[in-house]
């Protein structure tokens, strides 16, 4: 018996969609601090909460803004603008703290506003600019403006937290 075009097509059809493999994407938690729009892999972010008044610590680097108590835990609070050499963050009523983890090290970073979770196509992520400043070493890549709204710098959050930890304790 001759097979119909539909049956032939079905025989040739793949078992599963290959679209996901061809255009893989990553989920990033995106936020704004100062003039920077930053994204970090969503799996490294534990939670986000409103910043209260911070307790400054004596003899710490300027990028350690202090500590805050949250759910019975003491969290160091980092200023990414100072850490990346891009200015200085300010804590106000709308400031949020994003808690991230890298292994046993848990810390919070200051965000002026939360942009939300964004699924970004891997193909849309461009490599960090060559010959960039010191901040470039902590970038996974950048998403150019126009691809999906404004440009976003994607941070290697785990590496950034580790570097921050080393810089804080090496003083």
């Amino acid at each position: 018996m001759e097979t119909s075009p539909l049956q032939r097509a079905l025989k040739a059809a793949p078992d599963r969609s290959s679209v996901g493999q061809a255009r893989p994407e990553q989920e990033f938690f995106c936020f704004k601090v100062g003039e920077l729009r930053l994204g970090v892999p969503s799996e490294t972010v534990l939670e986000v909460f409103r910043a209260g008044r911070l307790t400054p610590l004596p003899r710490t680097p300027a990028f350690v803004m202090g500590v805050t108590g949250h759910r019975g835990q003491v969290l160091p609070v980092l200023d990414l603008l100072r850490f990346l050499g891009k200015g200085e963050a300010r804590v106000g009523e709308r400031t949020r703290l994003c808690v991230g983890a890298s292994g046993p090290y848990v810390a919070a970073v200051v965000a002026d506003s939360v942009l939300g979770l964004r699924r970004i196509l891997t193909s849309d992520i461009l490599p960090p600019p060559l010959g960039g400043d010191a901040a470039a070493e902590h970038l996974l890549g950048v998403v150019q403006p126009g691809t999906r709204g404004e440009g976003i710098a994607l941070l290697n959050f785990a590496k950034l937290l580790q570097t921050a930890r080393q810089r804080a304790v090496m003083r």
Binding site: P58, R59, T60, V74, Y105, A168, R171
Partner: peptide, 14 residues
């Protein structure tokens, strides 16, 4: 003190 916050011996805890 969180191990990564400071190594200053001045602040011993919270």
């Amino acid at each position: 003190m969180p191990p990564a916050a400071t190594r200053s011996p001045l602040a011993i805890g919270l």
